[in-house]
């Protein structure tokens, strides 16, 4: 059972954690279980809410969850465990790190600088572009975006051995579909004729240069293409 404060609310672990695997997620009593340390294999701990999209029903049929696992959501899926806080008791567990819009901006700039310092140019470029989207006159973001593009271009070009390399498809046409590509990567593959070098390919593909270079690096690493 989780600790409760004087008013009966669920206590949160230090550091803004959300829940523990052995606790209930609502004010209601936990259903009786076979074990002392947590719910049994077939037991469900519900949040006291009717099951519907946006609410959580947790199945503890697996091994006990560690706290860091519970909160490490995929960054690109912030809504995956979104709770409707308006309807849920504020004491209920909250698995989503909700940040206020003003904090996002501050974090974005910080993130851009930090990523750039750490040579994470993709991350820095992404953050810089978001900032430029909000304010097209953002000089700092524009400068960092340019620097990132140059570095990434050099990085990808270096990994490809230069843009004079000629890519050719290594996988038979009938087996391409097993590679798990997206349509843009497939389009790039379809432009390769074993004669055109990367520079020419960048001219004809109509994709942003960096995206095309990155895709080419991925295709090389995947073994889909060979560079000569």
């Amino acid at each position: 059972m989780p600790d409760r404060d004087d008013e009966g609310r669920t206590a949160r672990p230090p550091g803004g954690g959300t829940t523990s695997n052995s606790g209930t997620a609502s004010n209601s009593e936990a259903p009786p279980g076979p074990g002392k340390d947590g719910p049994g294999k077939d037991e469900l701990i519900d949040l006291g809410l009717p099951p519907r999209p946006g609410r959580i029903t947790m199945d503890f049929s697996g091994p006990p969850l560690e706290l860091p696992e519970a909160i490490s959501l995929p960054p690109d899926e912030p809504d995956s465990l979104q709770l409707d806080l308006d309807e849920v008791d504020s004491d209920a567990i909250d698995l989503v790190d909700r940040t206020r819009p003003s904090e996002i901006e501050i974090d974005l700039r910080e993130e851009m600088r930090e990523c750039f310092t750490l040579d994470d140019f993709t991350g820095a470029l992404g953050a810089a572009l978001l900032l430029i989207g909000k304010d097209p006159d953002d000089q700092e973001a524009a400068k960092i975006a340019d620097a990132c593009r140059q570095r990434l271009d050099a990085m990808y070009t270096g990994r490809l051995g230069g843009t004079h390399q000629v890519p050719s498809v290594q996988v038979p046409e009938t087996e391409l579909r097993w590679l798990g590509l997206d349509h843009r990567a497939a389009f790039l593959l379809s432009r390769m004729d074993g004669v055109m070098d990367i520079e020419a390919l960048l001219d004809v593909c109509g994709m942003p240069r960096l995206e095309a270079l990155q895709t080419l690096v991925e295709l090389t690493e995947l073994g889909a293409i060979r560079l000569t």
Binding site: E173, L176, R177, L181, D182, H183, A186, S190
Partner: peptide, 16 residues
Amino acid sequence: VNLPFIISSARNEALH
């Protein structure tokens, strides 16, 4: 005529 990954569906599925 074989064109793998010709387009992605609205659900982001690759279509051939």
